[in-house]
Design a protein around this nucleic acid. Structure first.
Lengths: 213, 213, 213, 213
DNA sequence: TATGAATGAGGGTTCATTCAT
DNA sequence: CATGAATGAACCCTCATTCAT
């Protein structure tokens, strides 16, 4: 026996996909209903409004995201390991809630202005605090470079990760963890090859690069 | 005396800002007109439709972008220098056409499906060819790491740059060139501090890398 | 219990009347909705567009018209009887689809240019072929006068019949058949009185005229 | 030197053509201006409004028409000759003011309701009085058949003539007078051939023809 | 005389939403 | 739970008209 929540989740997933593909505003309630095999009016048995569908998609996603983030932040890891864990967690989230992430990317900026979606701004702040704090800790610990504008670095990391939602498709050849590993490798060590002498001292630079990414 | 094209450009700039801030679909033609100090109907003296405004914003931007890119690609630089030049050029474009870039980011995916905006897909392909080709050249020349999935690297670079349009505001404390420099530094060399020994033994690799990046 | 098509037909009839009275272009969709006791937007639940309403009115009418015409043409009647039957059928059509006929009269010329209404031109051609062919047959059989420009005669007959839609109102004192009879009498025999001698030979000219018209 | 009235007449002719081709409502002022080689706004130097252009086209046409009609009616001709003269005059009018006639046909019905175009209704009445009177005179004089509904005959004659404006093009193979002659021949004597014997016995076929038609 | 730019009243259409069945 | 029909606000766009130049 499938409880009502099941159907609800399906509808939310369907809606999220359409929102992600066409944008919230450009998505008609009829389109969602079509995709779900019902008439537009019928959606209102399940949800109050189009906006409340969006709301539920976004808040569900953020709740799950913070479950993961909070666990990482509470684990007492070093700055680099924290960043690595957060990035990995983020890619897992993209894997599971790709549509929600895409919606978030596109719409959160102007949604955050509305009272109903104030939690987006709050999440954003908390997010910034967590990442920026970790980066600062890393700079202090001489794990991260001190010569960079730290806010720029923060935005760089943040965007670099989340933008991946725009092209990532679950079930592709790379697992979220693998993608996270490569992203971290690029972000932390750069895409340029290191100086020749370093290579000499270190016979397998490629392997090395991987081992600590 | 201001020639007619002047007014047109103003209106396009106004429209671009509103589109960028609220999204194309959510932007009403009346809103644009308000912002421009005229009535909605009056816009149609200057433009055929809301869509044609969008079209002109996007195509103008892409034309300018490719003017810059083509010059870079024709200059015969090495792969690393090419990437550096492209990134720098991109940030300059963000500086000048921030709104257009933001619109492009949000809307190009679904717009590209429409015949009218087919040029978006074409540009995208040309873009990919240029960047991917440069990266491949760089890998062959042992300038860029060979252990990374090159398409992943491409997307990483591409997104990382353009997403900046979402927060960049002209006239801020960093010039586009300065931002480009820091981005390149992160992307090419990573944000992590290199191993202590390597730096000591090798007085200038890191420093060198930075100084001319 | 009225099936859904019923409502649709009502709306079409209402729209046809308004179109016929004021012209297609001058008729607002709000006016139609008013007349139908609903709001303008509600019409779009039943029809795609104002144009598709017009389309359905016209094509429904033409379909019915050709049902009648084809039956007549397949009956193997002589030229005069064929003309009589076609005229009678036409007046019946005017009786039942007066509004559609009036719309057709006013709008078909420029509508026929649009691809969507290409069937108007096709119908027109088929119509011309049927009438012209019958007239030619009649001339060959010495039933119709040979001294007239046959295309002129065709237009004369055609217009003479259809223009009646502009003043004909169903439920008037003359039935469509009665009107057809008188029209045929005028068209075939003329409105002028016959020579004196003819009258002498034929004591009841009036009666006679009617009996075989 | 061309006086201003010349330009005015050109513009009116241009407007009349466009009105006739597309309908009054569907014709935009811009379209007229285009056709006249000027901008829409410039028309307002010459005319008060779109409606006043229509007004002038229609009233000019009716004035000329009545000049001709009044001359005919004042000539003291017999009923048949009067009808012949009126029809001939009408075709001449169609030849010269084809567009105006076409506009009149399509628009007069609903225009006549507006006070500004009350003269259309007046003309219509006068028209009806003249034709109907002549017909009645003809019936009394035993020149026209008495067995027909006279109002029906009137409408038949009236429509039959004016509808020709919808296909008549000046400069064609038939002069207006020739077309009038054939129309009159059809209307007065019918399109059916008279009985063979009657023709033989009677040197004036027209007379006999009727008895057996 | 004509232009260029703008006005403002509507017109067709869309769409989230409601509600009786 | 879902449908069918309707609502009503808002949207894009058209077009007759105005007016300073």
């Amino acid at each position: 026996m499938t409880p009502p929540p099941e159907r609800r989740r399906e509808l939310l997933a369907t809606a999220a996909e359409v929102f992600a593909a066409h944008g919230y505003k450009a998505t008609t309630v009829r389109r969602i209903a079509d995709e779900a095999g019902m008439l537009a009016g019928s959606l209102y048995y399940h949800f109050d409004s189009k906006e409340s569908i969006l709301d539920e998609i976004l808040s569900t996603f953020l709740d799950e995201l913070w479950d993961g983030y909070d666990a990482v932040l509470a684990a007492g890891l070093g700055p680099r390991e924290t960043i690595e864990a957060l990035v990995t967690e983020s890619f897992r989230e993209i894997d599971r809630h790709g549509s929600a992430v895409a919606i978030y990317q596109k719409e959160s900026r102007h949604l955050a202005r509305q009272p109903r979606f104030a939690y987006l701004a709050e999440s954003q702040e908390k997010f910034e605090k967590a990442w920026l704090g970790t980066l600062e800790r890393g700079v202090a610990d001489r794990v991260f470079r001190a010569d960079l504008d730290i806010r720029l670095t923060y935005r760089f990391l943040r965007d670099t990760v989340w933008v991946a939602a725009s092209w990532y498709r679950p079930g592709g050849q790379h697992s979220p963890e693998e993608i996270a590993r490569q992203y971290l490798s690029m972000v932390l060590d750069g895409v340029a090859v290191r100086a020749v002498r370093a290579v000499r001292e270190n016979p397998e630079p490629t392997a090395k690069a991987h081992s600590d990414s």
